[in-house]
């Protein structure tokens, strides 16, 4: 039999000191910098594909290009036409998936636990849009990509999903890409943020802000 409990690892090497949260090796570093970047890969990520005019789409209540929290605190992102990504606290993939599958849609619905397949990071701070402006061509002004906007674009020449998810009125963006390029994207964002004094801030449970899953 296996002697040691499996440890899940992000593609982004954690900045020391490290700790284990929900079975994931994460950075325990704390930063008070005005611009911070956090590896949020441990968050549960459920990919849902369904019809855009079915019951499930109605239940999720978030159209393509927008993101909003549901009553459980899960961030529902309309990441594509008929495609949603649900971001929730670590180790809740099963619960989130069950909630989705309980909705009677009538059409083809598929869910996939993308927790392991995506690298996810959060940038927080007033200079966050200035950092992103160095690696992404999308207009980040309030009237174009307000809080709750979600889009997929090239970030440092990598296909990346971006969600603006302000925290307490402070600018904040979540970025995710396919897992294998996670370290590359993280490094590119730190390089771009260097002139603004960016620092790595470790992962803090629950990580997605908001209500815990009940």
């Amino acid at each position: 039999m296996v002697e040691r409990a499996p440890v899940a690892r992000s593609p982004i090497a954690p900045v020391p000191p490290t700790t284990i949260e929900h079975g994931w090796e994460v950075s325990a570093r704390r930063s008070a910098a005005e611009l911070k970047i956090t590896d949020c890969t441990p968050l549960a990520k459920i990919l849902v594909v369904a019809s855009t005019d079915g019951e499930l789409a109605h239940a999720l209540g978030v159209p393509f290009g927008r993101a909003a929290r549901d009553p459980h605190g899960t961030l529902v992102v309309g990441s594509g036409p008929g495609e949603w990504l649900l971001l929730a606290t670590p180790a809740t993939s099963v619960a989130v998936t069950q909630r989705v599958e309980q909705v009677r849609d009538g059409g083809l619905v598929s869910t996939f636990d993308a927790t392991h397949g995506r690298a996810l990071m959060r940038i927080t701070g007033a200079r966050a849009p200035d950092l992103l402006a160095k690696v992404c061509a999308i207009d980040l002004a309030d009237d174009v990509t307000p809080d709750g906007a979600a889009f997929r674009s090239s970030v440092a020449k990598l296909v990346t999903d971006v969600v603006r998810d302000d925290i307490g009125g402070e600018r904040s963006y979540m970025l995710h890409c396919e897992r294998s390029s996670g370290q590359y994207l993280f490094d590119a964002l730190i390089d771009a943020g260097d002139e603004f004094g960016i620092e790595v801030d470790g992962f803090v449970d629950p990580g997605i802000r908001g209500v815990q899953i009940t």
Partner: peptide
């Protein structure tokens, strides 16, 4: 500009 050349690693790379 900066050398943006995406690189892909497997989880076993370390």
């Amino acid at each position: 500009g900066r050398n943006f050349e995406p690189v892909r690693y497997s989880p076993m790379q370390p």
